[in-house]
């Protein structure tokens, strides 16, 4: 069975104005992958994610999501792609003037025709899925950082997306919460078949959840390595990748 490509980047250059972070990158993400974007601090991982989610136009090249080039897509097409993707931001990015349930109902109100009652129940369900049962009427300011992330994930999952993007999901979480979040990501990936794209430099996450990856390098501004992170650790293509995956051991 041939795997289905869901994200395809071609000749992609990422940067800000004259400041190029990455030259002519090519990569593909298959449907159902847990795809890791890794690399040292400041190499442009978050910027890459911003390009994939349509927040930052690339300097050059194209990104196809589900066969649609998002760089040139019409507003309508873009809207359809957005309905099919969820994003978990580093801080959760919950709207502070709304309760958790309202936050999750927001995309539902925008894109679905459910009755208000159903929306509320769906919101409760998603909150329960991420382990926040009963927190419907809490405001974001009333919950902890880890809980905010989980609530953000619940919102990202509101519309049953095909792809979920994560920016450093484990940043600022204690080891247990971070492990639980990894489990949750895998759970979603397995049970819903959701494609997952994760920006992270947390080694334990990279090895437990990732089955495909790219390694960005700031110095050469290229993709230094790609593939399953466990394989990369076994046969590191070069020193830098090895050092990264072993927490700074020299070969």
């Amino acid at each position: 069975m041939k795997e289905q490509v869901i994200i395809k980047a071609e000749n992609l250059s990422v940067g800000y104005g004259d400041y190029v972070l990455l030259h002519d990158a090519d990569y593909e993400v298959n449907k159902g992958d847990v795809f890791i974007i890794m690399g040292g601090s400041g190499c442009g991982k978050s910027s890459m994610l911003r390009v994939l989610t349509g927040l930052l136009p690339p300097l050059k090249g194209s990104v196809d999501i589900d066969g649609v080039n998002i760089v040139t897509a019409s507003a309508e097409k873009m809207q359809q792609i957005r309905e099919k993707s969820g994003i978990l931001y580093q801080s959760g990015a919950l709207f502070s003037s709304m309760t958790l349930a309202e936050n999750i109902m927001l995309p539902l109100q925008q894109y679905s025709d459910y009755s208000p009652q159903t929306m509320r129940e769906l919101a409760s369900l998603k909150l329960a899925l991420v382990g926040l049962k009963g927190f419907d009427d809490f405001y974001p300011s009333e919950i902890s950082g880890g809980m905010k992330k989980r609530a953000g994930l619940a919102r990202a999952l509101a519309l049953d997306p095909d792809i979920v993007y994560f920016d450093e999901p484990s940043a600022g979480l204690d080891p247990v919460s971070s492990h639980n979040l990894d489990e949750l990501i895998l759970e979603i990936n397995r049970s819903l078949g959701t494609t997952i794209v994760v920006v992270t430099h947390e080694l334990s996450s990279i090895f437990t959840i990732g089955n495909n990856s790219i390694f960005l390098d700031a110095e050469t501004k290229t993709i230094l390595a790609r593939g399953n992170p466990k394989e990369l650790l076994k046969n590191p293509p070069n020193e830098k990748v090895y050092e990264f995956l072993t927490r700074g051991e020299k070969k």
């Binding site: 911003r50 989610t53 349509g54 927040l55 873009m78 809207q79 957005r82 309905e83 993707s85 994003i87 931001y89 580093q90 801080s91 990015a93 919950l94 709207f95 502070s96 927001l106 995309p107 925008q110 894109y111 919102r155």
Partner: peptide, 16 residues
């Protein structure tokens, strides 16, 4: 502050 907290990004990516 919403910009700093990435809430504006979230709005945009939700298509709101």
């Amino acid at each position: 502050t919403m910009q700093v907290n990435e809430e504006l990004d979230a709005l945009q990516t939700m298509g709101l």
